[in-house]
Simulated assay, not measured.
Amino acid sequence: MRTLVLPLVLALAAVLTPAAQAATTHVVEVIGDEFKPDTIWIKTGDSVKWVFRGPGVARVRKGLTPPQPCRYTSGPDSGLKRPGQTYTLKFSEPKHFVYHSTVRDVCRMTGTVHVD
């Protein structure tokens, strides 16, 4: 009887334990001088994929927290992207990620990713 109980308990525990939540990729469109949406909330482990729609080139760069969201010191930078290209960034810890788009050192727009 004991030899049947342990496998039964283990099987039942496997069925009742919730599966680990799969990571999600959230999409932000870069259209003209707008991020759509410009603010999003995601979970730790999720990714954000910026899809560049044009017209013209754009980039996504890490900014400093307000009041200087357009100031870039170091960190993630997509480089210049043309319409149809994408840039994906995975967020592995909780934080508020302020980003901006610059072309020829002109800050065109800003956005925020809130990571819980």
Rank of each mutant, 00 (worst) to 15 (best):
I42Y: 03
F35R: 01
V103T: 12
E93D: 06
K95C: 11
V98A: 03
V30I: 15
F91T: 00
Y99C: 01
L80H: 10
P18L: 05
S101P: 00
D46H: 03
T17N: 08
S74N: 14
K49G: 04
P83L: 01
V113P: 00
A13T: 14
A14N: 04
A22W: 13
L10K: 05
P37C: 12
K43W: 00
R53S: 15
G84C: 07
K36I: 15
V113R: 02
H114W: 09
W50M: 07
T25N: 08
V30E: 01
V28L: 10
L16S: 09
L16V: 13
T39G: 06
G111C: 10
K62G: 01
V106C: 02
R82A: 12
T102V: 08
A20E: 10
H100I: 06
F52Q: 02
P94E: 04
T25W: 08
H114E: 06
Y99H: 05
G79E: 13
P69A: 13
L64V: 10
D33T: 14
P67A: 15
F52G: 03
D38M: 11
P69R: 05
T39H: 05
G54W: 04
V5F: 10
E93F: 08
T86F: 02
A20K: 01
H114F: 14
T44V: 15
G32F: 12
T112M: 11
P7I: 11
A11S: 14
V60C: 08
G79Y: 12
A14K: 00
Q85T: 04
R108K: 13
A11Q: 07
V57M: 10
P94V: 07
P83N: 01
G84F: 06
S78C: 10
G63K: 01
T24D: 13
F35Q: 03
R71D: 15
H114G: 02
V28Q: 04
R59L: 14
R2I: 12
G84T: 02
F97L: 03
L4A: 09
K49R: 15
D38T: 11
A19R: 10
K62S: 08
A23Q: 08
I40F: 10
T3M: 02
H114M: 11
K95N: 07
T102F: 02
L80E: 14
T44S: 07
H26K: 11
Q85Y: 03
K95A: 11
T65K: 12
Q85K: 02
W50K: 01
V115M: 13
V27P: 03
D105A: 11
G79Q: 11
V113D: 02
P83K: 00
L8F: 07
E34K: 06
T24Q: 14
G54T: 12
H100E: 05
V57H: 06
A11W: 08
H114C: 09
A13Y: 13
V51H: 05
V60L: 09
V9N: 09
R71N: 15
P7D: 13
T88V: 03
D33W: 10
V48Y: 00
V113S: 04
A14Q: 04
V113G: 01
G75C: 06
T88S: 04
V28T: 09
R53I: 15
T25F: 09
L4M: 12
L80T: 12
S92A: 07
F35E: 02
E29C: 06
V15C: 14
L89A: 00
T17D: 07
A13H: 12
Y87H: 08
S101I: 01
